[in-house]
């Protein structure tokens, strides 16, 4: 029996897809038009082929109001920040979860609860005091200051702890019988079997780091450490008319890395996200 296509489902899903694609398409098409046409309010939905060069030009362009740091530099800072946060978080959380799950030591539960509490303290609610701690340690306008405070995360520790608790006792016994010490066990057995979770966590944390706005806004005040997200917002804010085609080109460039990471690792990411929150 052949069924006729489910037209209703296709119509609704297509509409959903369009709601997300359309704004991005206008951004892309807008980037390729001349600044004059955009400022006349004359934005075409058809990209101008001769305008595609804007994506290369935009890399070299900067925000004059803040020292003219070019877009390629902002992308680099974002990349460093996203990677630093993702790898840093994974490293320190895997180690602390390992200690909490596989050892008994004094103040173990205290350590667990101190880490757990950070779930409830996003940067947004402790802006001023965190900033004052940062300036006490002279971390304003440093890469360490940009990444370090975002590295501690209870989410990753809790996830790793949960994964580690499901490792069968027999595996640990076997490793011990073979004379493997704790660190050997951690690197040779524990990390490899947690591979899928590592991948999922990497996607979530990379995007978390890449998309930061408030923290760079506070810490990167002299332009040298401007991330691409911060840089773009500042480009549309000055009193002078923004150069829309360049700003839109930079916006597309800022979207490419995180979108690629999500699409390339979609399978692990979706599973990791939905399982991590259980």
């Amino acid at each position: 029996m052949t069924r006729k296509p489910d037209y209703l489902a296709h119509a609704i899903l297509l509409m959903g897809v369009l709601i997300f694609i359309f704004p991005i398409w206008v951004t892309f098409a807008g980037a390729t038009q001349s600044a004059a046409a955009i400022n006349r309010g004359d934005i075409s939905l058809i990209p101008r082929l001769s305008g595609l060069v804007v994506f290369v030009q935009a890399l070299g362009l900067g925000n004059a109001a803040k020292g003219g740091v070019p877009v390629w530099h902002m992308l680099l800072v974002s990349f460093g920040m996203a990677l630093g946060i993702a790898i840093g978080k994974i490293a320190i959380s895997a180690l602390s979860a390992f200690a909490i799950a596989f050892f008994r030591f004094p103040f173990r539960m205290l350590a667990f609860w101190l880490i757990f509490i950070t779930l409830m303290l996003p940067v947004e609610v402790r802006i001023i005091p965190t900033y004052s701690v940062m300036s006490d340690f002279h971390l304003i306008n440093t890469f360490t200051g940009l990444t370090m405070p975002l590295i501690a995360s209870a989410t990753a520790t809790l996830l790793f702890r949960q994964v580690f608790l499901t490792i069968p006792d027999e595996l640990v016994e076997a490793a011990k019988l073979d004379g493997a010490g704790p660190m050997r066990f951690f690197f040779d057995i524990l990390l490899p079997v947690s591979g899928a979770n590592l991948a999922a966590l990497f996607v979530i944390l990379f995007i978390y780091g890449w998309n930061q706005y408030l923290w760079p806004l506070l810490v990167a005040t002299n332009g040298r450490l401007d991330t691409i997200v911060l840089g773009i917002v500042q480009m549309i804010n000055p009193e002078a008319l923004p150069q829309w085609n360049f700003v839109m080109a930079a916006t597309i460039l800022a979207l490419i890395p995180p979108v690629l990471v999500v699409i390339a690792m979609q399978r692990w990411f979706v599973r990791g996200l939905t399982e991590a929150d259980k």
């Binding site: 899903l13 959903g16 897809v17 997300f20 995007i207 890449w210 998309n211 706005y213 997200v229 911060l230 773009i232 917002v233 916006t251 800022a254 979207l255 995180p258 979108v259 990471v261 999500v262 699409i263 979609q266 979706v270």
Partner: peptide
Amino acid sequence: LIWPYAIAPAI
């Protein structure tokens, strides 16, 4: 429908 997860709120 999943990729928009990657868009930064500020962007």
